[in-house]
Amino acid sequence: MGNGILLSEGANIDFMIKGVFSYELFGQTVWITTSHVCILIVMLIIIGFCIAANRRMKKATEVPDGFQNVLELIVEKLDGMVTSVMGGHAVYFRNYIGTIFIFILLSNISGLLGLRPPTADYGTTFALGIMTFTLITFNKFKYQKPIGVLKGLCDPWVFWLPINLIGDFAVPISISLRLFANVLSGTVIMALIYGLMSKVALVWPAALHVYFDLFSGAIQTYVFCMLTMTYITDARTVSEE
């Protein structure tokens, strides 16, 4: 009633996050939402795949075949991606980057399974952004030493300090908003198509699923990991002066 044209009666457009159940924690009401459930499903899929991979690799053969081929391909591709960007630092970050790559990729394409992608919840992407920010800051202080960090903040001149600070704190926000908005836009457009054109949305939305879920999701995963790696490499490189 009175929800504007898009949410008119009869059309059921459904892309909002819904609460599943709530509980009290220190006087606050905390909701378990559909995002948590979807993350759980994605994690179960990843864990199941990992257990299967572990079983297979325990009896690995010299000449790979079948499933082992696939696993070696995945690991090789992820390692190659990290090495091509981070160079010498790649050894320390292969595990982390590979993990978030697989997690974000599966989250983004979980729309194909009928789930609401967990990355279309700002809570998820902001947590990923905070992790990136923590890694950047930690590595900056470890490799450039506090004096170098201070020098970098006052780069051209002392009065640039607030602008540089804002620039540093904008990194996690922009990196997480980019992923969130891209996945959310795909989710909303698919929900609008299914809600408003439910009579004629028969087979052709599959093409849109390929674009919004597979293509866009893969590109955004790649971009998130690339930016994380670029920022970390930047933080670990000490400027020669």
Binding site: S174, R178, A181, I219, L227
Partner: peptide
Amino acid sequence: LLGQAVAETTGLYGLLVAMLLMF
């Protein structure tokens, strides 16, 4: 692709504002 994704951010901010206003 990396450059395009970074350039896309401003458009996405506009999209977010529109979605907040509408939904």
